[in-house]
Design a protein around this nucleic acid. Structure first.
Lengths: 205, 205
DNA sequence: ACCTGAACACCGTTCAAGT
DNA sequence: ACCTGAACACCGTTCAAGT
């Protein structure tokens, strides 16, 4: 698992940055975000704790890289779920939101890094911003199509906000065990919780 | 502001516990939750950093006390908003949810302590649990009345989950500046975002 | 260029006393 | 009972080298 042998001589490293991000994801999966430590990250990769600073300005920068990758995966999962449910629009919306909640539970520490205290407050990480925008864009596309095909009660952008808020709230409350759901019951649970939201967003048939 | 004079001789303290909780709220309001430190808390109250351990087992216990008080205030604000909007049911629901979101923004660090990583995972803080239940109960009462007076599309408990998720998601996304809203625009924003949810929960008129 | 090691100014928490 | 002070095992980050 954590054999720290650095493939002797391989530092100058090939790709220390990528190794650090991968190891960070391992640590998050094993231990959660609160106890995440730059020093342990370096230990796991088998370098001095200062070495990370060659690639990341600080701990926040490591989290930003981790978060960016998380958004890419999140979008991929939402799009895949959506494709599998196509071409029924309503089914696609459900599937997309289900994928969001499932990601939050399956990758809880990763999700918390992504959607906990905002990392890019000072705009240092434009690539993170782009990844976030891609996720947002995925929902926009969905509500755009909803507007054209079914009609929305309100504006498209308001619909995106409502849908995201409901899905995100469900995800974080479930993640934090404020709502208790067995993993196997999650898809049905998500569906039941979001059904009124989707019904409220679409124009009555 | 932070004159640490301990009212000479008043330690043996009168109420060190209360002084610590009050100071913790000050620190949270000024600096946020991430940089919150037991040692600074003690400094601010003017006692040795070990003194807090007489009243709190650890840092989590301090947060639990802070969170408990937060839930009491949150319920109070929701109930007050609701009372002011009575007797129109729909107006009460909006007012209650608006109060939740407003609390999250006005007391953001406090809110994050309350609804961030769960403090009572191991059941050490039954009083916190009771305060959380009171908040939950406030929404249940509302949806209960909705069920009786207007009819809900689904089960009452599912309606509570949906309403809470949407409101909570809106609160956390706004709080983390994933959604950008001026404080003055918040009531209207909340209303617009939650309107489809409430429309979807109630039986069509 | 890339990595290291010592050092700094912090933490939370434990132990052993003091009044 | 209640509070203190030294100590322990950590942090993130800076500075000054080493290869």
């Amino acid at each position: 698992m954590s054999d720290p042998k650095p493939t002797r001589g391989s530092y100058h490293h090939g790709d220390l940055r990528r190794a650090l991000v991968d190891a960070a994801l391992e640590i998050l999966a094993e231990q959660g975000a609160d106890s995440f430590t730059l020093r342990e990250l370096a230990r796991r990769v088998g370098v001095n704790h200062r070495a990370a600073y060659r690639h990341f300005a600080d701990k926040t920068a490591v989290f930003a890289a981790v978060a960016e990758q998380g958004y890419l995966e999140l979008v991929a999962r939402m799009e895949a779920a959506r494709a599998a449910a196509a071409p029924d629009l309503e089914a696609e919306v459900f599937a997309s939101c289900e994928a969001y909640v499932a990601f939050a539970l399956d990758r809880s520490a990763h999700f918390r890094v992504m959607l906990g205290p905002r990392l890019n407050e000072d705009g240092r990480f434009p690539e993170l911003e782009r990844a976030v925008q891609a996720a947002w864009g995925s929902l926009v596309a969905l509500m755009d199509r909803a507007q054209r095909e079914r009609g929305l009660r309100g504006e498209r952008d308001d619909a995106v906000i409502t849908l995201w808020a409901a899905t995100h709230g469900l995800a974080t409350l479930t993640l934090g065990r404020r709502l208790r759901v067995k993993r196997s019951a999650l898809p049905a649970f998500t569906r039941r919780a979001l059904a009124p939201v989707i019904a409220g967003l679409f124009k009555p048939a």
